[in-house]
């Protein structure tokens, strides 16, 4: 079976052209996105450790930093491997997103004069790209605050992880909680469409029932993440944990 007569890159084989297609980019976004969602779920679960007590939480944090997979790996190695993997996922995700965005802008040459009526598109879906950019900025802020401690609000370099959290989300820093809530909200909207879209891209949408199931699951994961991430700061702000 011969290939398209219109190939823009005729020197490539069909297989190579297919490898460069938007569907493959989307599959990469789907896999990396699902890795990131899995990470979020664990991260959220770990945060909830703070409801046990300060010691449990601090111990969990130091385990994360130093002890995972010890003694297979030396102390402190895992966290770096983990960070590299996450970073690779993020870079892959963002790169593919940017590439697809560019393709879409090119494909949609002009706008409708009468605003396009698109009832199927959820708010979450419509804001994936803008939301993704906001998300990226907030992730950087989040890392500067809690990972590198370059931005210190309500804690200092000597604070334990637990103290850091209590300090940052205290009532006097209510605006930090607000930004955090926005951050988590954007994350959850992104996950809402991303989760469904990732599975669909990987071919899981096999029929109307699957479509319903995947969408329900997407809402469930998004709401779970929102509640799970917001419980600690809200509890701290209202003084239920100290």
């Amino acid at each position: 079976m011969p290939v398209a007569t219109t190939s823009a890159t005729p020197s490539l084989s069909v297989h190579q052209r297919a490898l460069r297609s938007n569907v493959v980019k989307k599959a990469i976004m789907a896999v990396t996105g699902l890795v990131l969602i899995t990470f979020l779920l664990f991260h959220m679960f770990g945060n909830l450790k703070m409801f046990v007590d300060a010691e449990a939480y601090n111990h969990y944090a130091s385990w994360l930093h130093d002890d995972i997979l010890y003694p297979i790996l030396p102390h402190g190695w895992f966290i770096w491997i983990f960070r590299v993997v996450l970073l690779a996922c993020l870079v892959g995700h963002v790169y593919c997103a940017a590439s697809l965005w560019r393709a879409a802008r090119h494909a949609r040459s002009s706008k409708y004069v009468h605003a396009a009526h698109r009832p199927e598109q959820t708010y979450a879906a419509r804001t994936m790209r803008v939301g993704g950019v906001i998300l990226l900025l907030l992730v950087i802020f989040h890392l500067l605050m809690f990972t590198t401690r370059s931005v210190q609000i309500g804690f200092d370099s000597a604070s334990t992880p637990y103290e850091m959290m209590i300090g940052a989300f205290s009532l006097e820093n209510w605006w930090v909680v607000l930004i955090y809530a926005i951050f988590v909200g954007v994350v959850c909207m992104h996950v809402r469409h991303g989760f469904w879209s990732a599975f669909t891209t990987l071919g899981a949408n096999v029929g109307p029932n699957a479509r319903i199931a995947l969408n329900c699951l997407a809402y469930f994961v998004a709401v779970l993440l929102f509640v799970g991430f917001m419980l600690p700061p809200v509890a701290i702000m209202f003084g239920m944990v100290n």
């Binding site: 890159t9 052209r17 460069r20 938007n22 569907v23 697809l100 698109r118």
Partner: peptide, 12 residues
Amino acid sequence: DENGFGGCTNVG
């Protein structure tokens, strides 16, 4: 793709 169509974002 080569004919200038965009990628699918599964919005329906």
